[in-house]
Design a protein around this nucleic acid. Sequence first.
DNA 1: TATTTTCTTGACAGGCTGGTCATGATAAGA
DNA 2: TCTTATCATGACCAGCCTGTCAAGAAAATA
Lengths: 176, 176
Amino acid sequence: MLGLSQTCGYAILALSCLHECGGGWVLARDIARCTGIPQAYLSKVLHSLARRGLIVAKRGYRGGFALARAPDRISLLDVAEAVEGEQAVPRCLLGLSECSPERACPTHRFWQRERERITAELGRLTLVEVAQFERQDGTWLGSCDPRNSRHVNRRRSARTATVNGRSRHRDGGNRS
Amino acid sequence: MLGLSQTCGYAILALSCLHECGGGWVLARDIARCTGIPQAYLSKVLHSLARRGLIVAKRGYRGGFALARAPDRISLLDVAEAVEGEQAVPRCLLGLSECSPERACPTHRFWQRERERITAELGRLTLVEVAQFERQDGTWLGSCDPRNSRHVNRRRSARTATVNGRSRHRDGGNRS
DNA sequence: TATTTTCTTGACAGGCTGGTCATGATAAGA
DNA sequence: TCTTATCATGACCAGCCTGTCAAGAAAATA
């Protein structure tokens, strides 16, 4: 099947959800309800995004997740590589391990071009474009706003933890 | 991972190998040796290609496999759909089940265009183009000629069973 | 310090993909 | 009819992806 994994789709939905909240800690539970992703699985996806430094996590009372950097600096390619590893867009369309310019598969040249187009587009699309898309069309899948949830942290706490605006960038690093 | 399955790559290698033999029954064992595909697994791949009518199989002494129709009428898209089902190039890049024009994911429009390009190219590329590619570059992975193998059927038997030139088209149908 | 809240993480399960092995079915020829 | 060559197919396995569950660790607060 020629496509990214479902987990990658989940990751983009979750990040977009965090972006929509405009900074502040958002509970995994609320992201799950907002996006429809199974919560237990979402926890693992979020964890892998945190490990790759795309988001930061805070445990305990009034904890949650937040973007680790500005939304225009998180591309869909970043997400794909965080979730699926470096080879999210593989070199050989046919999945042949020893396909190279010297020893190529028949789709090699075509896929080389196409791969560049796809990689470039995934690199260009950031969470900002995703949000714009949503506003323009109103068709985005995860359009429920987690801030309207009864479980979400109060707005004032969202101001305290200004994650996007830099200030706690280095927090993402010191994890075991 | 954004790519077709390895099995699909196997299928294209195997079909190309059959085409290179220019008609006549080729043993699964020889295709396996020529392409490097594990023989037991190749058997299953060939079987699924036979079920979809891309090749014909003959059991018993001097049996083997042969293309069921002319090589320029077997596209890579045919192969992908035979092996991976109709949705070889899925509608949603992110694998989201409910992604549609009314309720879209952020990559929807981009992927719609890209999907058409890829599908068209896979539909255009047939076994003939694959063979041309091989001749031009000499880089094709499965370039060992199974006819040079000590196990292959004698050339005279290859003339007997002219599969490509029509004549036994209907054989593919009557299987339980 | 005890409690509550929340993320973390390991165990596990089901389905799919890639792969192996053994047995059965069938075709040709002696 | 017997033998041999060959494909067909079911059982099985390992690894990955998706998903669930539960116990553990950490942070805030009373």
